[in-house]
Computed example of a mutant assay.
Amino acid sequence: MQLQLPLWRPQAARDAAHAVRAGLLPRRAPGGWHSRDAAVMGTAIHVELWADRRADAEAAIDAVMAEMHRIDLTYSPHKPDSELSRINRDAGRSAVPVSEETYALLARAQAFAELSGGAFDISYAAVGRLYDYRRGIAPDDATLAAARSLVGWRGIELDPATRSVRFARDGMCIDLGGFAKGHAVDGAAARLKALGIGHAYVSAGGDSRVIGDRRGRPWSVAVRDPRRADGVAALLPLEDCAVSTSGDYERFFERAGVRHHHLIDPATGRSPRAVHSVTVIADDGLTAEALSKTLFVLGLERGMAALAQVPGADAVVIDAQGRLHFSPGLQAR
């Protein structure tokens, strides 16, 4: 069964919509919709926007793709010259100076780690890299135990005076995959707004950012049925917000009836199984993605408690029995 939820929009968007209907703000001149798809950061990128002229639309979409490639070049763990690779290579031996952007991301990661009690932890990479989802490889207990000794967000030492990062133990490493795509769609949205785009949708895999509405109606974002690739569990009508979905169906393999997926509990090094998917709506993509990962690892009760600490965030959870659960903010709508 597909569920249609009421419109989710921030207060500022509601005020602007009322002003347009009252004739206090001008309506946009006639134009058209433009879109493009690409593959960056190992995921599908989609952009759809409204512009008065095709040249303006193409320039805006080019700006989005440039931002996606910039994030990939900076934070890919697979590129040896990326800033992330430099951190992982050197921070176990000495403090590594980083860019202002990277330092801010690391500080946000540590804040989410504290909020979640360690359920969100970018140092999980020490165990995450032991899995190969294409080849169906999972670590044995001894290998996993050794890697888990290198996991722990408190071992990521940030120094604001030198804007640097150091690891407490050599062999530690980090992965920003827990919210890099959310950060990317935030950057893309900022570029679009700077170019005067008022209606747009940008997605990077399960992370999306919507600007304005879809010219008189909300953007509609589907929550996939985690056990049917073409099924939709719920539809979210959205304006001016970000949405992130984390699911156990994105990258996984099964062995002896156990599903090993890419969402890892830093405390165990294994895949949590209490829920199948989590969708979070928030003001920005970085927050939405970090919270969707957090809630997935913590499970329904503890995850909703963590979510409640972030003003304006809401969630849709599909548990292991296929039941839908909504945060109080969505229930109130």
Score class of each variant (00 low, 15 high):
residue 43 T to A: 11
residue 299 G to C: 08
residue 118 G to I: 01
residue 35 S to M: 11
residue 284 D to S: 08
residue 122 I to E: 02
residue 277 S to I: 03
residue 240 D to E: 14
residue 8 W to M: 10
residue 55 A to C: 07
residue 126 A to P: 09
residue 202 V to P: 03
residue 277 S to D: 05
residue 243 V to A: 14
residue 72 D to R: 14
residue 86 R to H: 09
residue 9 R to H: 02
residue 95 A to I: 02
residue 162 T to C: 11
residue 159 D to Y: 02
residue 36 R to K: 15
residue 166 R to P: 09
residue 11 Q to M: 08
residue 138 A to S: 13
residue 100 E to F: 00
residue 181 K to L: 11
residue 306 A to E: 02
residue 284 D to T: 10
residue 114 E to N: 00
residue 143 T to Y: 07
residue 317 V to A: 12
residue 210 V to D: 01
residue 167 F to D: 07
residue 83 E to A: 09
residue 207 D to I: 12
residue 127 V to H: 06
residue 193 K to H: 09
residue 129 R to M: 04
residue 32 G to E: 03
residue 126 A to D: 02
residue 85 S to H: 06
residue 1 M to L: 06
residue 279 T to Q: 10
residue 121 D to A: 04
residue 154 R to H: 14
residue 133 Y to I: 04
residue 328 P to N: 07
residue 235 L to V: 15
residue 195 L to Y: 04
residue 139 P to Q: 09
residue 97 P to K: 14
residue 315 A to T: 04
residue 7 L to C: 09
residue 21 R to L: 15
residue 17 A to V: 12
residue 281 I to C: 10
residue 145 A to C: 03
residue 168 A to R: 15
residue 176 L to G: 04
residue 99 S to Y: 03
residue 161 A to H: 02
residue 238 L to T: 03
residue 141 D to R: 15
residue 332 A to F: 05
residue 261 H to M: 06
residue 207 D to M: 12
residue 125 A to L: 00
residue 162 T to Q: 13
residue 106 L to D: 12
residue 18 H to K: 08
residue 158 L to P: 14
residue 258 V to H: 14
residue 270 R to I: 00
residue 101 E to M: 01
residue 13 A to W: 13
residue 142 A to M: 07
residue 35 S to E: 15
residue 79 K to Q: 10
residue 197 I to M: 13
residue 288 A to K: 10
residue 222 A to P: 00
residue 312 G to Q: 12
residue 46 H to L: 06
residue 226 P to I: 04
residue 279 T to G: 05
residue 62 D to P: 15
residue 230 D to R: 01
residue 180 A to Y: 01
residue 291 L to Q: 05
residue 102 T to G: 07
